[in-house]
Amino acid sequence: MSLKCYKCENFVVDASELEREIKGLNIVSSAYGSVRADTGLCLWHETFVTNSSSCDDFIKKTFSYKI
């Protein structure tokens, strides 16, 4: 339980990726706003968590190359 969500493969915190996951989020809102702070989406549990959350299903993140 010591490894935090922000280092997990299943944690989506990147704003553009989050907007791709939840279609329509950018219509009258945004994943780039301050109010979201460090909230991200856990793809494993399909649940919103903060980057300091943790669980037993942790998988170490391997960053994908893009842009």
């Binding site: 989020l25 809102s29 945004s30 994943a31 706003g33 109010v35 979201r36 702070a37 909230t39 991200g40 919103f48 968590v49 903060t50 959350s53």
Partner: peptide, 8 residues
């Protein structure tokens, strides 16, 4: 925005 703010 408010929904996202309390989601976690």
């Amino acid at each position: 925005s408010a929904s996202m703010a309390i989601a976690a």
